[in-house]
Design a protein around this nucleic acid. Structure first.
Lengths: 224, 224
DNA sequence: TCAAAAGTGTTAGATTTACACCCATGA
DNA sequence: TCATGGGTGTAAATCTAACACTTTTGA
């Protein structure tokens, strides 16, 4: 029995902007579209929302199908509802962004799906309105990253302060003064210095830090 | 002919959080739901997205059906996609917020629709997840109001600085220092003093100001 | 004449920005 | 020994926040 029977129904999809961070560049995961229309064009990964799952769940499922990863940090970007946005049928799409640590994504799985990490400032043309989705996702992510400790999702558990700084520079799009940056980090007790040293990027080696979620939850004050 | 034929289709609605400002309170327009399920409960105004209109257009149409107003400032809040969010059938809803000047909304039309302006801090229980929609809309609007001159949509073309301050206090939820506030206004050339005086709220009278869109577009720097 | 809202500047404190050199190490 | 990235403090400038009295006028 339907209550709202006189109204149109619509295909609803999710599209996921998967952000990664590599060395010093912000990356987005894209692939060649496998389906008509637009077969072969660069595109975000997406999927249709089925009857028995929430849009959030559809985004998580899409992500898991692609990466095998569960418990990924995702946030909604918004709905894209132009009538003719998809050249096939009408599809209303909800965009989400996800933050993953590139190293947690197995190369094997990435290859199987022919997914490519692309520098965000060198994106090719993308299918439909996917470029606009990326633009909005980046903007939202950038904003949120200033005031919430979400950037750690893009890094390994242990990271150097230089890595962290490069991440903030890549996302913000401009260089940051090293001393000022480190001063601010020092004020945040939940960014903990370990006694481990990373020697992969320098001869001297750099201390590794970790984000302590528990300490953060006791005083959730973040500003970068 | 369908390209995506194997996928589920969904009812998609829009719900609009219509903000107004009266004296010194931020208001939201709500009404009694006219439809089962949930008939008689307090609810936002909404409507279903039809096949040939964008979600943005559906929001504008909903708004126009209710208020008669065209060219209203609206922004999307986001999609609400829990499977069981609507007690009737599954409905995915896209929330929008709108900013209108209460005085531009004819009382007659408001009465016809039995719409009520409710103080945002005194909202009753609302249908489905509408309360959460209001919460998110308020948060987004508050953020945007700090950095973009959107508040003027809630005021008459001519307003006093006290009115403007009350608006910012109502939206931000805390009192603002009068002198500091006026200092910041003075720095923004696009908030123009007219030589008109409003005597409705004081014996002495207060200068009326107006927002000059053109001047703003030449130097779009806003911070409050 | 007085109550009520409008209008107006200054100062201390906090925050932000700019800036340059020494350190440790492996090649 | 030297090239490379790691690590550290101070001072000036800017921004923010706190604060109180005078003006105008209608009742």
């Amino acid at each position: 029995m339907t209550y709202y029977s006189e109204h149109s129904k619509h295909l609803v999809s999710v599209d996921v902007i998967i952000f990664g961070f590599d060395e010093s560049r912000l990356k987005v995961l894209i692939g060649r579209r496998q389906m008509d229309p637009g077969r072969g064009e660069w595109s975000l990964y997406g999927g249709f929302v089925s009857a028995d799952e929430s849009t959030d769940d559809a985004a998580r499922r899409t992500l898991q199908e692609l990466t095998g990863m569960k418990k990924v940090f995702i946030r909604q970007v918004g709905a894209f509802g132009q009538v003719d946005r998809d050249p096939g049928e009408r599809v209303i799409s909800i965009a989400y962004y996800a933050l993953i640590n590139v190293k947690d994504y197995s190369e094997k799985q990435r290859m199987e799906h022919k997914a490519e990490w692309t520098d965000i400032s060198e994106l090719p043309q993308l299918y439909s309105d996917h470029r606009e989705m990326v633009r909005q996702a980046w903007k939202l992510m950038k904003q949120k990253m200033r005031t919430e400790p979400i950037g750690f999702n893009l890094l390994p558990d242990l990271f150097t302060l230089t890595q962290l700084q490069r991440l903030y520079e890549a996302v913000g799009g401009e260089p940051i003064d090293k001393r000022n940056f480190r001063k601010r980090i020092k004020d945040m007790d939940f960014i903990e210095k370990t006694d481990l040293i990373d020697k992969t990027t320098s001869k001297r080696g750099a201390y590794l830090y970790r984000f302590n979620k528990k300490v953060y939850s006791e005083d959730p004050t973040f500003k970068l």
